[in-house]
Amino acid sequence: MLEIKNLHATVDGKEILRGINLTIKAGEVHAVMGPNGSGKSTLSYVLAGRDGYEVTQGDILFHGRSLLGLEPEERARDGLFLAFQYPVEIPGVANATFLRSAVNAVRKHRGLADMDAMTFLKTAKAKMKQLQMDEKFLQRAVNMGFSGGEKKRNEVFQMLMLEPTLAILDETDSGLDIDALKIVAEGVNALRGPERSALVITHYQRLLDYIVPDVVHVLAGGRIIKTGGKDLALELEAKGYADIIADAA
């Protein structure tokens, strides 16, 4: 599904990722944990193809094809979804309008006909119910005036609508209370299946109680310094990053 090979990346000329190797097979959920400034968000932006995040060495293969050189929208249409840590506000654009454009852009790419307004509305309302979101959110402008928790829920809602094959969740747990966290996790779990994978980026182990990963990686200083099973997350929580980093060094 996703193969990251010796990935080096710079931001403003500064090297943030220094040789990441990571393989996610279809159906797997991987967690990437690490202290602040370890390069977690950079990794998610590099995967999504954000301008200004320059890959200087290595490659990223998605479904066997290199992502390098693909525009962000091409990656998105291929099934890569990034749930943003800080979702941006877009004044005047209704959530429904925005999402329908996105859904149809992805569908078109997959050779499917546009989803008509009625089907879209029906589907959207069902997914919102699942996430315990108020239907009014459809008519509100994208993320405008949403609380931190509402924004995160909206990200997961978009993910459910777009049905990506690889979901990258960038600190989706931050800003969520425990009830919201459960709902969001249920949403993510609902999407799990043999053909779908996820990369969960988080600072805390908490989220992983609800989205149980197959593999856990520890990212520090732009490299993966340790990889293990779900127990590694618990170990991290107990010992803290400093010890693990010291052990790995």
Binding site: E71, E73, A76
Partner: peptide, 18 residues
Amino acid sequence: QLFYCRQRGLSEEDAVST
């Protein structure tokens, strides 16, 4: 804003238009 829209699959021009 542009990146957010494009990450959801909109082309750059559609993103601007939106």
